[in-house]
């Protein structure tokens, strides 16, 4: 049983990092209706910047972190203004293809700027695991869970209570009505991308620290799809729960099944879940059905 809990709890902590990445994706989808296939690459780019600042330029963490967060927020803004805004009104496939293109551009740019070889992100986190009730908790995972958790709680507060957060939800609900009450919808779009950039920056540091920074880091983005389909494409709590479920499931499954099949369970099981979820609840566990009055 301890083995199970060990896998489960560490899986949840990894899941919180999926949730962080998924949050950015959901936010962009909710506010601007863009399905962003470059979310993983955004995370990768964040990881690259972090590695460059810490390793290449040898900046202390306290300096590197604000620079990283600032540049990723800026990157989000720039992508929205420069690339997606001109696409407003185009058909869904064109917009999706633009984000697919963006993903490749990020990969190329990161490799060109900082090289393709794997870098690590040194964080002042001890390696020795804590043992609580026979469960081994890796400090890296704990740190990841804490950072993701704090970010998400802050975000949810912002989204629910602040003036801008309410404006974002209003825009997601009815764009034209949002304009009618004077909400600056363009600002909301830009802000969604900026926050997604911020989440990607944190995701990049955490994931980069865990698995190293190279273009492969972008693959964490692929796990975002099962997470958000499970939770509901347009649901912020859904992103959180979906991320946690994916993390826990893949960890537990890998622990029990991998020894028999020689590995790889992690890579496909989330997608099996995604397909099942689509068949049972197409709008996710937290996604909203459309309220319609006729």
């Amino acid at each position: 049983m301890a083995f199970f809990f060990d896998l489960f709890v560490n899986g949840l902590m990894i899941g919180s990092m999926y949730a962080l990445v998924a949050l950015g994706f959901v936010l962009i989808y909710k506010a601007t209706s863009v399905v962003n296939f470059a979310q993983g690459e955004l995370v990768m780019f964040g990881g690259y910047i972090a590695a460059a600042l810490l390793v290449l330029y040898k900046l202390p963490l306290a300096v590197a972190l604000p620079v990283l967060l600032g540049s990723m927020i800026a990157l989000g803004f720039i992508v929205e203004r420069g690339v997606l805004r001109p696409m407003v009104g185009q058909n869904v496939i064109s917009v999706v293809m633009v984000t697919v293109g963006l993903a490749q551009v990020f990969q190329g740019a990161a490799a060109l700027l900082w090289g393709a070889q794997t870098k690590n992100i040194p964080l002042p986190i001890p390696l020795e695991p804590y043992v609580i009730w026979e469960i081994y908790l890796s400090p890296v995972n704990i740190a990841a869970a804490v950072v993701s958790g704090v970010f998400m709680v802050t975000f949810v507060w912002f989204f629910r209570k602040s003036r801008m957060g309410i404006a974002m939800r209003a825009t997601a609900n009815d764009q034209q009505a949002a304009m009618a009450v004077g909400i600056n919808v363009r600002m909301v779009f830009a802000l969604s991308w900026a926050i997604a950039g911020l989440a990607a920056a944190l995701g990049g540091v955490l994931w980069g620290n865990l698995i190293g920074v190279d273009t492969q880091l972008a693959l964490v983005g692929l796990k975002v799809f099962p997470a958000v389909i499970l939770g509901g494409l347009d649901s912020v709590p859904g992103a959180l729960v979906g991320g946690l479920i994916i993390g826990a499931v893949e960890s537990v499954a890998a622990g029990y099944v991998d020894p028999y099949v020689g590995g790889g369970t992690k890579d496909f099981l989330p997608y099996v879940l995604m397909i099942l979820a689509l068949m049972v609840r197409p709008y996710g566990f937290f996604g909203r059905e459309i309220i319609e009055r006729v």
């Binding site: 003036r163 309410i166 404006a167 939800r169 209003a170 997601a172 609900n173 009815d174 034209q176 009505a177 949002a178 009618a180 009450v181 909400i183 909203r288 309220i291």
Partner: peptide, 14 residues
Amino acid sequence: HVFEHLTVEENLLT
């Protein structure tokens, strides 16, 4: 065109 998913008060706040 109320924001259906927002509460009445949140609607007013917008």
